[in-house]
């Protein structure tokens, strides 16, 4: 009698088929994925790209420049006061 041996696909193929079949059988999921893609497109393709640049990354090239800028920002009130005092002396 001839014996039929069914060879099981390898693990990566089984995982691939698992995802593929899962996505194919989705009903509500398809709508949800559309919403996710549109949302990600708006968030990353529009908002991040055109409206939300990383201020320090965009305007300064080195971490030292960024650190100096921030120190300058947080001590600017003192610098204003010192300048005024020097002006008074003049």
């Amino acid at each position: 009698m001839e014996q039929i041996i069914v060879k099981q696909p390898s693990l990566p193929i089984r995982i691939y088929r698992f995802y593929l079949d899962g996505f194919r059988q989705m009903t509500l999921g398809k709508t949800l994925w559309k919403i996710i893609f549109i949302k990600l497109l708006i968030i990353f393709g529009v908002l991040k790209l055109f409206f939300f640049p990383d201020f320090l990354a965009t305007n300064f090239t080195t971490d030292k420049d960024r650190a100096d800028y921030v120190i300058d920002q947080i001590t600017q009130s003192v610098q204003v006061t010192n300048t005024l005092e020097k002006g008074d002396q003049l």
Binding site: I43, P53, D54, F55, L56, R66, V70
Partner: peptide, 16 residues
């Protein structure tokens, strides 16, 4: 994720 964008743009001193 949008809040992380805001950190970099609106609150850069804090983020740094």
């Amino acid at each position: 994720i949008i809040m992380e964008f805001e950190f970099g743009t609106n609150w850069s001193n804090y983020s740094w």
